[in-house]
Simulated assay, not measured.
Amino acid sequence: MSHANAALTPRARLRLAKLIVEEHWSATVAAKMFMTSPPTARKWAARFRVEGAAGMLDRSSRPRSMPTKTPPELVKRIVKARWRRRLGPAQIAAELGLPTSTVHAVLVRARINRLSHIDRVTGEPIRRYEHPHPGSMIHVDVTKFGSIPDGGGWRFVGKQQGDKHKATTALRTGRTSKGHPNIGTAFVHTVIDDLSG
């Protein structure tokens, strides 16, 4: 698919090619009209002659062949060294006489580029526990907080006013002991289910 700023969309390419092939315009004049180069205009005209309107569509830029692609036998040796001995890309590269970047690229394609996903002792993939249904395993965390008196504590309103608020709150809640106001603490309980967490 053409990008938004493409000079020639498939429809414009077809009009350009028809001008050159069917109406016998010169490639230079047609290219000037469509604000492109004469070699580009000749390319689209040649493609129109061979393939017709279907040749005006975008093609993949993927190469037909990759002569420098790592051979499959070498890929197997890299993967084998990684799984059997858990060597890093630099160690494998030195052993096989390859660039480190090539070994790393092969490991990324094979999705074994991180040793943290492999148990170092057994070489097996690390398996995380998962529980099959909600409530089969939960994590409970309890946090203790000091209660804040009604109207704000001493840090917010000052020492004198804070003490008054503390005494008033203690009287309201019934938490006075031997003349000292005690407003108590609060506990926040957090429960996380393993299945959803």
Score class of each variant (00 low, 15 high):
residue 144 K to R: 07
residue 148 I to E: 05
residue 69 K to I: 14
residue 43 K to W: 13
residue 67 P to G: 02
residue 72 P to W: 01
residue 142 V to L: 12
residue 12 A to S: 11
residue 6 A to S: 15
residue 112 I to L: 09
residue 70 T to G: 05
residue 60 S to G: 08
residue 47 R to Y: 01
residue 31 A to W: 00
residue 44 W to C: 03
residue 118 I to T: 08
residue 82 R to A: 04
residue 111 R to M: 12
residue 90 A to C: 04
residue 172 R to Y: 02
residue 47 R to N: 07
residue 23 E to D: 12
residue 73 E to I: 03
residue 25 W to C: 06
residue 2 S to C: 10
residue 179 G to F: 08
residue 51 E to P: 00
residue 48 F to C: 01
residue 37 S to H: 11
residue 87 L to P: 03
residue 167 A to H: 06
residue 109 R to M: 07
residue 53 A to E: 15
residue 14 L to W: 04
residue 170 A to F: 03
residue 68 T to V: 10
residue 70 T to L: 14
residue 102 T to L: 13
residue 95 E to T: 08
residue 76 K to T: 03
residue 23 E to C: 05
residue 65 S to P: 02
residue 86 R to A: 04
residue 109 R to H: 09
residue 30 A to Q: 01
residue 64 R to V: 09
residue 5 N to P: 00
residue 56 M to S: 06
residue 132 P to E: 14
residue 38 P to F: 01
residue 37 S to P: 04
residue 45 A to G: 10
residue 24 H to M: 09
residue 47 R to S: 04
residue 22 E to G: 13
residue 56 M to K: 02
residue 44 W to N: 00
residue 33 M to C: 01
residue 18 K to A: 03
residue 53 A to I: 13
residue 63 P to M: 10
residue 119 D to P: 11
residue 158 G to N: 12
residue 134 P to G: 03
residue 181 P to N: 03
residue 16 L to T: 02
residue 94 A to M: 07
residue 133 H to Q: 11
residue 19 L to V: 07
residue 21 V to H: 13
residue 102 T to Q: 15
residue 190 T to H: 10
residue 34 F to Y: 07
residue 14 L to A: 08
residue 57 L to M: 12
residue 134 P to H: 11
residue 1 M to D: 13
residue 76 K to P: 00
residue 57 L to E: 14
residue 7 A to C: 09
residue 186 A to V: 14
residue 191 V to E: 14
residue 163 D to V: 05
residue 182 N to M: 10
residue 159 K to E: 13
residue 32 K to N: 07
residue 164 K to S: 02
residue 99 P to L: 03
residue 73 E to S: 09
residue 14 L to Q: 14
residue 77 R to D: 09
residue 133 H to R: 12
residue 82 R to D: 07
residue 26 S to V: 04
residue 17 A to M: 11
residue 160 Q to D: 13
residue 128 R to S: 05
residue 11 R to G: 02
residue 94 A to V: 01
residue 108 V to N: 04
residue 85 R to S: 04
residue 124 E to Q: 14
residue 97 G to I: 15
residue 132 P to I: 06
residue 107 L to Y: 00
residue 76 K to Y: 04
residue 82 R to V: 07
residue 158 G to R: 13
residue 65 S to G: 06
residue 43 K to H: 14
residue 73 E to P: 02
residue 25 W to Y: 08
residue 28 T to K: 08
residue 37 S to G: 06
residue 39 P to S: 00
residue 20 I to E: 09
residue 31 A to E: 04
residue 178 K to C: 11
residue 75 V to G: 00
residue 114 R to G: 01
residue 175 R to A: 07
residue 104 H to S: 10
residue 99 P to M: 02
residue 164 K to D: 04
residue 88 G to L: 15
residue 39 P to D: 03
residue 140 V to I: 15
residue 103 V to Q: 03
residue 103 V to L: 13
